[in-house]
Amino acid sequence: MESVLEVKGLSKKYPSFELKSVGFHVDPGMVMGFVGRNGAGKTTTLKSILNLVHPDAGSVRVFGLDFMENEDVIKQQIGYAVGGVSYYNRKRICDIVAVTKMFYENWDDSEYKHYLNAFKLDENKKLKELSSGMKVKFYLTLALSHHAKLLILDEPTSGLDPVSREEITDIFTKLAQKGVAILFSTHITSDLDRCADSITYIKNGELMFSGNKSEFIRSYTESMGKVPSLEEIMVFIEKEEVVL
């Protein structure tokens, strides 16, 4: 089966941070959790994938096509959302949609209505009137209404209450069952317990693991002397002594 997203050797050097040759792949219907501490390089990686940040090296292939050479074609089939960001805050949902839909060849009004109802979104509301969870649902609606086959989501659950987080992760599971591939970054490990099939772990800009979730847990079972939770693994990997 061909990967939906294939990232190879992605590198980017900043004065105080370096992303070091990150590579992984996401298959159709897969929910991949992209994990790491704040500042580990998750957003830089996601933005590099989307050419918002220019990587120094590496390649990104989406649906088998080189991203740089087929950017506009590929973007017709992907959706991107960032938790905590509000595009066009004072505009009504229907106004944002009326403009956005012009750009997508596959825009489907019936799908849009379907997700609007499913997520209980009122299209006459302004974006600033939506809660953080509802905003994420709105961005998902935008992506799914043009039949996006790959969703790239940067911390979509950060700042959400536990109920909203569970709702969003349930949505991810259902979308994956429909064949949508999802790559979402997070540092909230309980979200991954619920919905992720695979994990890509990044520490200080360096890839530590990319593969099946159960394999990831198994790889730490021996060194930790028990079957650890994802949270315990993250603490085990990241904990540093604070010298006061």
């Binding site: 918002l52 950017e71 506009d72 074609v73 973007k75 509000s86 595009y87 066009y88 805050n89 956005t100």
Partner: peptide, 13 residues
């Protein structure tokens, strides 16, 4: 509005 990022993510050059 973070209009630039939104625009850059649209399927356009």
């Amino acid at each position: 509005y973070d209009d630039i990022t939104f625009s850059a993510l649209l399927p356009i050059r």
